[in-house]
Design a protein around this nucleic acid. Sequence first.
DNA 1: GTCTATAGCTAGATAGAC
DNA 2: GTCTATCTAGCTATAGAC
Lengths: 186, 186
Amino acid sequence: MRPQKVDDQQLMAGLMAVLRAKGYDGASLNDLAEATGLKKASLYHRFPGGKKEIVEAVLNYVLDWIKQNISGILLSTDGKPQERLSKTLNNVRALYNDGDSICILRALTNDTGLPLFGLQIEESFQVWLEGFTQLGLDLGFNKSQSERMAREVLIKVQGSLILSKAMDDLTPFQQSLSDIEQIYKH
Amino acid sequence: MRPQKVDDQQLMAGLMAVLRAKGYDGASLNDLAEATGLKKASLYHRFPGGKKEIVEAVLNYVLDWIKQNISGILLSTDGKPQERLSKTLNNVRALYNDGDSICILRALTNDTGLPLFGLQIEESFQVWLEGFTQLGLDLGFNKSQSERMAREVLIKVQGSLILSKAMDDLTPFQQSLSDIEQIYKH
DNA sequence: GTCTATAGCTAGATAGAC
DNA sequence: GTCTATCTAGCTATAGAC
């Protein structure tokens, strides 16, 4: 076989960048091809199911990333809980480019994306919530408090990303991440 | 002239429903025509600038709605501040169908919508913020506290809408609106 | 595995009858 | 003011050469 022109890692990065910036309907296969350096027909070779399969693959990649860089850290027992939180929040900052990038889960959470990818989106949010719920428990909060705080984290992250984008000002996002760190201090 | 088949109010309602559900790229002129009961060519008669002008008109309508039902109430001096807050939050619940509807400002806050409508989106958010900032001042909080609380309101609303949609569970939104009421209690 | 070329379709937008 | 009919461009997807 011919060698792959771009490896899976590069491919996913390019596809995700376009999808989270433009959404499902706004991202054309030409956009996706251009961002990855492949031609349309080559994308169909890698993803025979077309755009739908591309998004499914990217969402699997996102879920894996969350498991590795969010919930995986928070569910581990390395170091102190506060250190796990700091590490996780730094990964969140990197994921969203300090508040400048749109969340791909958000970009797909509309009436065109949800019927196609709702289950995958829900799973990613669920895994994220489970990580932060465990953090609350590790810090001595009870179950219902911990679950509530985990929801609050997601709400702050998603809400501040929208506000930062709309106002063209990264401080809401950055402030919100600081606030999250405070929430978990007794 | 011929009579209008649908009045401006109905027209805006139909257009907004499609746009916030599907976003700018996802909403086709056929979708918009079907939702309003007009044909494509008739939409072009009302909005010669096409889809872009349609969205601009809808965003003007949204801004007016926010001025009337959010900031207008919070900037008034009718009744007690807490009553103004309750009334405003009920309007917010109605706007988003208790958490089931997507925010059109959010739906347009991506790399296809922002270059076209960024200024209008920012203005709507700004007006919303000014209303809640005044509420904080009326309740005795200082300026920087009031501004921070106003941002927190928008973050909670936008973030909980996303979480509610993604998890198919309206409680995050409803809980967040209750939380907002608590924030403003001394 | 990647590419060029193209099929088939739907998009946004326009012309012109009524 | 609304409609049917139509244009062109761009879309998703496929065929087949290398």
